[in-house]
Amino acid sequence: MMKLTVKDIAKAANVSPATVSNALNNRKGVSEEIKQNVLKAARELGYTRETASDKSTIRLVIFKRHGYVVNDTPFFSSLIEGIEKECRQQGYQLLISHISIMEKDFREIIAGLNNDSASGMLILATEMLSEDLELFGNYRNPIVLLDSCLRDSNINSVLINNEDASFRATSYLIENGHTEIGYIGSSAFIKNFFYRRQGFLDALHEARIAVKKEYLISVEPTMEGAYRDMSAFLENNKNLPTAFFADNDTIAFGVMRALKEKGVNIPKDVSIIGFDDMPFCEITSPRLTTIKVFKQEMGSTAVKRLMSLMTEGGGPSQKIQINTELIVRDSVRDQK
């Protein structure tokens, strides 16, 4: 006997797959009459809770390539909280799996997930490359990538509008009279950082400001690593720009510590802008100007897109970029 699907019940009840999903999971928005009609059609087709228990499950895969970026930070905690809240509201159970390619058995773990009974899969793809996605090629149900997109694939994605965000941050520095602007980037590659660098360069190019290679600094994307690498840079480089854009807040925090230890006043001597708007931005000295990422909304959007794929097929593949907001605090000096 073939596996019973939501579409089978929808056809029998003459309603949409989304209505079937809502009725079976006792969600709001379905009249009692339609709900009973759906349940009647489901029973006649042999549906039981046991035969469809996996239909109310979403799996989140937290994928790590190197672990420098994807770790226990407020950014990812908030992102996952948004996923959990949306799953609860929609009546889905969330299962979380951690995959690290640094572990010997990661291929076996992924092979097991390819046979997973969950209705769909969210992959936290922050550190993911195209070759990593190929490992999930045998997964039969819908997949949505979160916090990255892979240009050579047709997978649905929900991510930050990185390029426009870094363009806005850099433009803010320029608007405040800065023409000597540096970039503090991550030594560990992720696509988010690639596009943030592109937005930074585009802003300088549009303002006809030359890019100075000596102001393009690479640091480890951890607070301690950024502090260490920036301290080493400052030992050998006395000339600094008047402002820096940092790939994220974690890097900015480490860099600020190194600058202050060398007697550099922020923002009097050097201004700095971060990215993410982590809670620590409010308690740094000075308070950090940064780009606010709507993390919970991003997680919620990813769940909604996955649900659309699970219940309705979803239509054409979508790349959904979530816009950001510049949060002005105290770490940028007006040079005009």
Rank of each mutant, 00 (worst) to 15 (best):
L4G: 03
V6T: 13
V6S: 07
D8G: 04
N14I: 05
S16T: 15
A18R: 09
A18I: 06
V20D: 01
S21I: 03
N22R: 15
R27V: 00
K28S: 12
K35S: 08
K35V: 02
N37M: 10
V38C: 03
L39W: 06
A41M: 09
T48V: 06
T48Y: 06
T48P: 04
E50D: 13
A52T: 12
K55V: 02
I62N: 12
F63S: 03
R65N: 10
Y68T: 07
Y68Q: 11
V69P: 01
T73V: 12
P74R: 11
L79D: 01
I83P: 00
K85T: 11
K85L: 11
Q90W: 00
Y92V: 02
L94W: 04
H98W: 04
I101K: 14
I101F: 07
F106M: 08
E108T: 13
I109G: 08
L113P: 05
L113E: 10
N115A: 13
A118E: 11
I123T: 08
A125K: 06
E127M: 08
S130R: 09
D132Q: 13
L135W: 03
N138Q: 15
Y139E: 10
N141H: 14
P142C: 07
I143L: 08
V144Q: 10
S148A: 15
D152S: 10
S153P: 00
I155C: 12
V158M: 00
L159V: 07
N161L: 03
E163R: 15
E163I: 07
E163D: 11
D164L: 15
S166I: 02
R168F: 00
H178T: 01
I184C: 01
I184A: 02
S186Q: 11
A188E: 14
F189G: 04
F189P: 12
K191I: 06
K191A: 12
K191C: 09
N192P: 07
F193E: 03
R197I: 05
Q198F: 08
Q198V: 13
G199S: 08
H205I: 12
A207N: 12
I209Q: 13
V211Y: 15
K213Q: 15
I217E: 05
S218F: 12
S218T: 09
V219A: 04
E220V: 08
P221T: 05
P221I: 00
Y227D: 01
R228P: 05
S231Y: 12
N237H: 15
L240P: 10
F244I: 02
F245W: 04
A246K: 08
I251A: 00
G254D: 00
M256C: 06
L259H: 03
E261M: 14
E261H: 14
N265R: 13
I266C: 07
K268S: 10
D269Q: 14
V270H: 07
S271G: 07
I272V: 11
I273T: 07
F275N: 09
D277M: 03
F280I: 10
R287T: 11
L288H: 08
I291L: 00
K292S: 11
Q296R: 13
E297A: 09
A302I: 07
V303G: 09
L306Y: 02
M307A: 01
S308R: 06
S308D: 05
T311G: 04
G314K: 05
Q318N: 15
K319Q: 07
I322A: 01
N323H: 11
T324M: 07
T324K: 06
T324P: 06
V328P: 04
S331Y: 01
V332A: 01
R333L: 11
Q335V: 12
Q335I: 12
K336S: 14
K336D: 13
